[in-house]
Design a protein around this nucleic acid. Sequence first.
DNA 1: TTGAAAGCGGTACCAG
DNA 2: CTGGTACCGCTTTCAA
Lengths: 359, 359
Amino acid sequence: MIILDSERIVFDLSVFKESGREDKAINIYDIAKLSGVSIATVSRVVNGSPKVSPKTKEKVLAIMQEHEYTPNVFARGLGLDSMKTVGIISPNIEDHYMSRAVAYLEKNLHYYGYNCILGCSGHEQKEREAYVKLMLSKRIDTLVLVGSVFAGNGKNEFDTDYIREAAKTTPVFMINGCVDGNNIYCACADDFHATFEVTRRFIERGKKRILFMFNSDSFSARQKMAGYEAALSAAGYPIRGELKFKTRNDIEYTRDLLLAYKNLEFDSVVATDDGIAIGALKYAKIKGISVPEDLSISGYNDSILAIGCEPEMTSVDSKLGVLCKTTIDHMIKLLEKGEEIDSYISVPCNIVKRRTTDF
Amino acid sequence: MIILDSERIVFDLSVFKESGREDKAINIYDIAKLSGVSIATVSRVVNGSPKVSPKTKEKVLAIMQEHEYTPNVFARGLGLDSMKTVGIISPNIEDHYMSRAVAYLEKNLHYYGYNCILGCSGHEQKEREAYVKLMLSKRIDTLVLVGSVFAGNGKNEFDTDYIREAAKTTPVFMINGCVDGNNIYCACADDFHATFEVTRRFIERGKKRILFMFNSDSFSARQKMAGYEAALSAAGYPIRGELKFKTRNDIEYTRDLLLAYKNLEFDSVVATDDGIAIGALKYAKIKGISVPEDLSISGYNDSILAIGCEPEMTSVDSKLGVLCKTTIDHMIKLLEKGEEIDSYISVPCNIVKRRTTDF
DNA sequence: TTGAAAGCGGTACCAG
DNA sequence: CTGGTACCGCTTTCAA
């Protein structure tokens, strides 16, 4: 069966349909022919242009519905140089914080008619750079970087050059990371004050040796450490290097690391993630230390883990939902209304008190 | 500044570049002109066609690299009717099982050069159907449905018609769900045998009243219940309706539901998800029941929760990684080599023994 | 209010 | 091995 383009045999599509192959989807030319108008008019109807007579509009709409016409997104993308798509990159979506972020982002983007293409970049700088490049080559409308590792480790400024480079082409939004540059927009939880407050409360309750447990040099981790140090200083406490404890966000790894240390004394733990905090909790369990009496522990991100453990974990709710929603709202303002938006937003956190602390 | 297409002023692109706007990306025509060949040849080089002389190839390649040329994906998509994209839909990516699945899928797809567009459909039938339609309209190469809710609740066969409908257009792959139909390919954990085995072990240890706790009527939940029942029957035990306990995959909800029941006696719990199992664990803690001596509990999916709780939870590892990898391998076979592939694969599970059971 | 036609940036077939 | 060119399906000016 041959279909000449000059004489499209439209109704024969049914033949394909019934054969279950549906080789060629119906296109704008078909709709135009069936409606007895030009493709320009069909296009106007599809895009809700006001300059179409109600009568024509109705007719075309009816034909479109009857044939379940869907415009070809590629052709549209080619013409408009956009497919209403945003790229989301996170180091690892298995992490509960990241997956929650992606869930929020997707939900809000979907609401605004965008779809999201997802990338898990891993934790290597090289991989991150490669993934960002890849995303840009997909001609996404916007790039969202989830997780504060994207903001570099604070040591080498050039580590974030690739983000500034990307921003030359495409607006970049960062969730919980801060990078300075044109066309880069950041939304961060106020980790400094949250950690300051947690530490302050420990001090208030008479804790003397507060262990700060962290797992990366990310932007967020640096804010948290600064908050911890500031609270110590405010109380006139010394900042002891041995009480800054680097580990992984892994329960068993953290537990074993603590068990391995012989002469580390501490009466409380400020952790930068729940997994770490629970590692400390497991350590206490094994050593027979009672929580929160002899060891108080505070986690971060208020994940499901904080409720699953025993006793349940006091944790900082970093207001991820707010962060994500705000980000998307700003994105829409920028993309669709061309409005100016803030390049940095800070969202206050909330301490969720449970039973591993006595405040 | 005007650029006429008949006489493109290629080098003037640098003007744009330095102004930081980069209005028009370099295209195949530019590369062709710069290399002194036709666009057909450039296209051949881009696509690694063998019929290009090494000399020409080298020259074109050099120009492409120098100008960081990237083919326009939309134009390519339009011509090939494919953008090497797969759509992934899951009800809720906040769920740890789902996010792990997406992580595995993305990783493998990325390896094969596909990118994935993600959708979180929620738990309503209507939303699922709408989301599937939306995805299809994006002209994805394949659709992946993650989670056994997509396989319907087993009561109404028509609930899965939309999947068969989708499969007429696009191959559909299901992770841990089973739907019969042409062009639909399913990979499932062998939940029947895993649950059979867990139940059998409880029986072997003398448990008499084994509570089966589940949270949905999904395909997977039905397999698990069947395994539970089969094990009871095999041991000559009666199947008691009151020991089939429906809840949510929510720790606190499950805990409170158990606390509310007055006359429910049980000496062991077979749960279809870790969150449920931990709800039972919390219940035991509050009631002062010792685990595993007086109450044995077994979870499912071997999530991070199983390690975070106290005591740590015996859980079924449903081999999600294997499921996902196999699915992608099959997908590639089908898409790129046109090979026939199995429409159903079953992957055996593994029971990870920890301290909430005495087997 | 409508239609004709020029792109958008590739791919792939057909000649040479 | 290479070039010319007809699509792919839609958007958007420009005329009518």
